[in-house]
Structures are given as structure tokens and as C-alpha cells.
Design a protein around this nucleic acid. Sequence first.
DNA 1: ACTCGACAAAGTGTGTACACTTTTTGCCTT
DNA 2: AAGGCAAAAAGTGTACACACTTTGTCGAGT
Lengths: 235, 235
Amino acid sequence: MTERETTQADTIRLAIESEIFNGSLVPGASMEEGRLAARFGVSRTPVREAITQLVQAGLISKSAHRRAVVSELDPGTLLDLFEALSELEGSAAFLSTTRMSRAEKQHLLTIHEAAADNLRTQGDPNDYAKLGSAFHHGIVRGCHNTILIETTDWLSLRVLPYRRFQVMTPGRLKKNQADHDTIISAIVAGDADVARETIQRHTLEQGDALMRFIALNKTKAVDRLPRAVNEEYSV
Amino acid sequence: MTERETTQADTIRLAIESEIFNGSLVPGASMEEGRLAARFGVSRTPVREAITQLVQAGLISKSAHRRAVVSELDPGTLLDLFEALSELEGSAAFLSTTRMSRAEKQHLLTIHEAAADNLRTQGDPNDYAKLGSAFHHGIVRGCHNTILIETTDWLSLRVLPYRRFQVMTPGRLKKNQADHDTIISAIVAGDADVARETIQRHTLEQGDALMRFIALNKTKAVDRLPRAVNEEYSV
DNA sequence: ACTCGACAAAGTGTGTACACTTTTTGCCTT
DNA sequence: AAGGCAAAAAGTGTACACACTTTGTCGAGT
């Protein structure tokens, strides 16, 4: 009768994931199984399983007999990440140009226009960020290649813990929107090569900006984060 | 005193992995934790951990309260896999063209020539396959982007269980070698675009050939595999 | 005071027990 | 004989216990 579709380990994994994304667990923070278990009111077993999963996802690093640590990306790796992501998104855009349905293109246009509207009316920057993310995701999904989508998502996930550092200056916002405009135009016009090159450079630049920002502000920013913890997470 | 650098779960994971690769565990075969545990002489705990890891790696599929199954790729997904892989290798080749050291290029040439020699002297086809794999891997490593390398390896891993189906006809061998020749020439000449396009198309064609072969011979081939099991793995 | 090393505390890895879910078996009904 | 329901068997998920490893502490030697 009592049907359990989602296991406890899954619940814990999602919980830890979101704590990493919302910044409760900062990159570099170490997690101790027993404490997590106590905090979530379960035994260590499902916690361990959740951690194992997150390790494979790349969000957590861990070596034998040592406690798990939220993955910390050094600037070099972060750059590699964005470079790889930009190539992947470029490939996706290339394929999407010829594979997206009319409805999908329309959906993308709707998002793009909503973003433009947000800029014109000086709407919530947070909403703009969401629209931007939806735009990228829409393009990637448009390629209809499950593996490519999955892989892109996988890489995007690993950047997520650092996205919160991103601050968009008015100049960057405008450039961002202009890039998106070029991309969607290329897709609609059926120019796959331009779509690929534009989104590729665009994503790379985004990453570059984020990297520079982190390099400059990291220490200060970390200390100022709400509920941020540098060392051990406290109950 | 007794130092344990590799945990039992790791050992088990590697063991299962290699059984998947060498065909003892065929895609679609279901694995039962208790039996695996007994077979490896450990408790279920490390086996479960190994399985969790392999699930995240994509080699095994599993849903709650159901036993784990060696991932089975339908033709469509397999095609997607090769398409994604071809894009990734294309990107890597593009970057490698400008980033490979002289020594790395030399190493690649050595491999390529050994392969050519193998063809001329009608050497062991198995050796030729290994050289081909080393060639691809060498190009990917040449891009010096950890994430891109890691991601490419990740996708390659998922194809591995199906590589054993691959049979190279003399015609394919020659074409394969010619492609490799074009690629290495482009890299040495510094023509990144040609390198990208060539290896991209090359990998895609490889995948296509493999797919067709599997589609034609799968059922028969599976039954003929040494130590192959269709249903449950028996102790 | 500093280094080194033994001891103590904390934490991870794995074995085992048990609850709950799924699958199988076999009986009953039609 | 086929279909379906119920109980039993098998298997997965989780708690807990314990061994071994790592980490932290404290005191002795220099």
C-alpha cells in the first residue's frame, strides 16, 4: 500500500544539490556524513548514497576515507568548463537551426521578446537571468539529441554554484541581448554556421566575465553571502 | 599500518565495468545485488555503492526498488551518442591544432605510422583497433582542456559495450586510415577547420557503420558471444 | 619553544539485520 | 483452462554496529 516512488537517498541528494546551488553549501565546504544524516533525520546510509551520486555528477569531490567536499573549481578548470560548454552549445545551435520545429522557434522568440521587454521596462534582473537561461536551454533542447542535451546540462550544472557571483552590468546586459538577437535571427534565417559561432563566442565571453568577477571579488563575496559557511556546515 | 588506498566499492566497480566491456555482462542483463556480493565475496554495501557509481556513469540503469540493468542503447540513442561524440571530438581537434606541443604531434604521428604499418603487413586487427583508439584519444588529449577530455571520455565509455560488435572490412580499414591521414595532416599544417570537419565526419561515419552492423546482426551476435548471458547473470 | 610520536577522538567503510516493495507461486473462482 | 487474488518468496532500501583510517591532542625529548 505505502508506495514509495522516490527513495530517501534521492530526496537527500536533491536537498544537498539545492543547498549547493542556493549557497548554503559553498564550494570548498566539507560535509560530514553523520551530521548531514542527523540534520535530515535519516541514517548515514542514504546520505552516503546521495553523496556518491553527487560525486559522479561532479558537484562533490571525495577520496577514500576523507570527508566529502563541495567541488571547488580553480580558475583554469572554470575556463575549461566554459570552453567545453561553449563548444557544446555551439554544436547544439548548429543542429537546432535545421531541426527545431516551427513551434519551438516560436517559443524561443517569445522568450527572447520577454527578455527584451524586461530590459526596456527595467524589470527584475532576476527574471532576466531566468529568461536568459531559458533561452539557452531552449536552443539546446532544439537539437533533439538526448545525449547532447544531457551532456550540456551536466556541464551547466557544474557552473551553477558559481552563477550567483554573476553580476550583470548595464553594458553586459545590452551586449547579451544583442548576442541573443543575432543567434535567434541566424536560427530563423537558417544560417547554422552563424548560429554556432555566435552562441559559441557568446557563452565563452559569459564565462570569461564570470571568471574575472570571481577572481576579483571571491574572498570578499564569499564572506558576505547569506548563510554562507566557509568551513564545516553547522547544525 | 594496513593502508587501504582503494576501497572495496572501487574494486567492485572496476570489476563490473570490465565485465560489461568484455561482454560477460551484456546490455540488458539484470544484476542482483546479493548475487554479485556473493560472487565477489563482500557484503551488499560496497556492491550497492559500485552500482550507484555506474548508474551515474551511464553504464547501468536502475529505478527505485527494481534491480539494476546494464544500460541498453536503442539505435536512436546510439546515433545521438555518436553525433555528440563527433561534435566533441571535432571541437577537441580544432583546439588541438593550435595547442598540441611538438612532442604530442610527434607521438600522434608515431601512432599513425604504426597503424599504417599494421595495415601494410596485415598485422593483428586487434592491434589496429587499439592504435585507432589511441589516435583518437591522443587528439582529444591534445586540446589540454580537462573538462572536454573528461566529457569525451565519458561518452566514449558508453559506446564501449557495443564496440565489440564492430567488424572492420578491408574497405573500411583503408578509408579509416585515409581519414586519419587527412586529420593528422591538417593538424600538422595548422588547418584547424579541416581537422575539425574531418574528424567530425569520420567519427559520425564510424558510428553509422557500427549502428548498421548492430541492427543487422544483433540477435544472432548476442547469442554467439562467448560467456554471454541474456537474462540473469548466473553464478 | 619546536618537533616528533603515542594516544584519544572523530569519521569513513563495510557487515548485518530488518522493514517494506516487488515478484513469484499456487489456489480459488468462473 | 484461463484469469485473478492471496500468501509466500525474493530483493531492495535503510538503520545500526563495528573495524579500520584519519585527524586532533598532549606530553616527552631535544
